[in-house]
Design a protein around this nucleic acid. Structure first.
Lengths: 202, 202
DNA sequence: CGCGACGTTGATTTGCCTCAACGATTGTGG
DNA sequence: CCACAATCGTTGAGGCAAATCAACGTCGCG
């Protein structure tokens, strides 16, 4: 029986890189050889805390989340990754240290993965990949900075508004529990916020 | 009259890069030619909101902060930069967009700066600078992720503990107003936290 | 069918903010 | 060098945003 994952095109990943910098044929071949498709079924783990993050993940289809579980057992979501976005624990990945984070699948999800060793090959043999990944990480850094500012300076309601504005495609795809955990509020309070909003709207 | 800044050695910056990757003589010359020293006196601005962030800043001596001012006039500090660390608004710098952030000097501060155009020259003519800056930005991203998690998942007291642990050299160098603004609490509340702590310690 | 996750609502608690006042320190101009 | 203002750190009283705990109906799923 043939898996979906094995028939998945790598083209979206090439497109993603080329949005940043055009690739030579040699570079494209490297990507095709070094990245491998894999399917994660809903609720399966891409990374569990305690393990070293060994793969860099680019999502082709589906949805992953990265989160931390605190002492009280509460989940705090750092990031969602849907189509055409990447996700991994960079600190664990590069430092070869056990991760304190988890990554799991909220839907059946197809990713293209590259191992740390192969990524180094990609950096070494490829022309532009240091630059491409520099730009990707810079963009992540900017986004994360904005989110930190939001969290420090805004109320839960404002953060929810911003979420609706920035991730409209996620609103109906995620449960409110997931959204609440991303915003840093309890599901109960998010429910109240939505209630206030729908009353205020009319 | 000769400025302190003009006699400042660029060696710490070279050391900083070489902590990451050894440089060829050609690369060192590039750094020496493209970075320029500048002194900012206490309370002077390196970047004001509305301006495009035109310089990448590496601090040799002194202390800078980067912050946002919200609608109510409250200051939220994203980052401090002391000796041997860099600071800039990457989003504004690369996107050539007006910044919403401010960077100013908490002490008389000497920086080495490089303009956006010259940084591109550095990337193009230098051997390893894409890689070096990729690693630097990756490290920043990891640190910022940890801080976001802290902010989402911890109480103000825990955040203060973490601050004491991670930045012991800053505790006696910054006023409590600055630290409070970094932690995301009011100065009054930080004062109470310190009070509780000193009582609990005995 | 029955179980567990979800979303909602109510009552209560709490972490942190706001506003206000005070002495101590810093710094600034006359 | 002193006087005055400005900023800082602290403390008190009161208020609000959001958490906690608990209960309940709904839905999807094994």
């Amino acid at each position: 029986m043939k898996h979906d994952a094995y028939t998945t095109s790598i083209q979206p990943l090439l497109d993603y890189f080329e949005d940043c910098i055009p690739l030579h044929e040699h570079d494209k071949q490297l990507v095709k050889n070094l990245f491998h498709a894999r399917l994660y079924r809903k609720r399966h783990y891409v990374l569990q805390e305690g393990d070293v993050c060994a793969q860099f993940n680019f999502v082709i289809r589906g949805c992953l989340r990265m989160y931390k579980v605190d002492e009280k057992g509460n989940i705090h979501i750092l990031q969602f990754a849907t189509e055409n976005s990447w996700i991994n624990d960079l600190g664990s990945f590069h430092g070869l240290k056990p991760s304190t984070l988890n990554i799991d699948a909220l839907e059946d999800t197809v990713v293209f993965q590259i191992s740390r060793d192969d990524l180094i090959v990609l950096y070494t043999e490829g022309e532009m990949f240091d630059r491409i990944f520099r730009v990707l990480v810079e963009n992540s850094l900017v986004g994360l900075q904005e989110r930190l500012l939001q969290n420090i300076s805004s109320t839960a309601e404002e953060r929810y508004e911003t979420f609706l504005y920035r991730y409209p495609h996620l609103v109906n795809r995620l449960s409110q529990v997931q959204i609440a955990s991303f915003l840093g509020v309890t599901p109960e309070f998010l429910s109240r916020l939505r209630n206030f909003r729908s009353k205020a709207k009319s």
